[in-house]
Amino acid sequence: MTGPDNQLPAGGILGLLDLVEEKLLCLMLTAMIVLACLQIFLRYVYSGGLLWIDPLLRYLVLWCGLVGALSATSQGKHIALDLTAGRLPPAIEPWLTLLIHLFSLLASAGLTWAGGLFLRGEIEAGGAGPLALPLWFWNGIFPLVFGLMTMKYLLLFSMQARKLLAGNNHTNCRAS
């Protein structure tokens, strides 16, 4: 499902966000490899590891996955089924894209909402996670990522809508 209609342009705030995502992903993946190997090393040298490494690793995995999914949104790289496989009339195609962006926008907004409710509960309940940081900090990644995702789908949707409005003046020209 990579097509020009599904990708966000690089540049501006979005470009900055993409850059932050990429750096963050590299940093977290490196940290995961280093920490996991360190744990094995410590076990052999000191016959015991550091207790905080394992829980931290598990949250790093979660963060990596969610931030990775956020990047996948800009790149149009989410797993999807496509039964139409380009068999739709060219006139309908851009409208379908618009519909899908609208749905994605609503669905990710719904997830953001649920994430917000969850975060509120976590803050009320308290509790500490890895590195003595509160649990709500570690779980705050859910509403944050879903929120940013909603923003990205809003952009995709409005871009597509603008293109369609402009396209009505010309003859339908589809980028391939």
């Binding site: 989410h78 089924l81 139409t84 899908i100 994605s104």
Partner: peptide, 9 residues
Amino acid sequence: ALLRSPLFL
């Protein structure tokens, strides 16, 4: 879902 919406959504 059948029309290429992201499956996780």
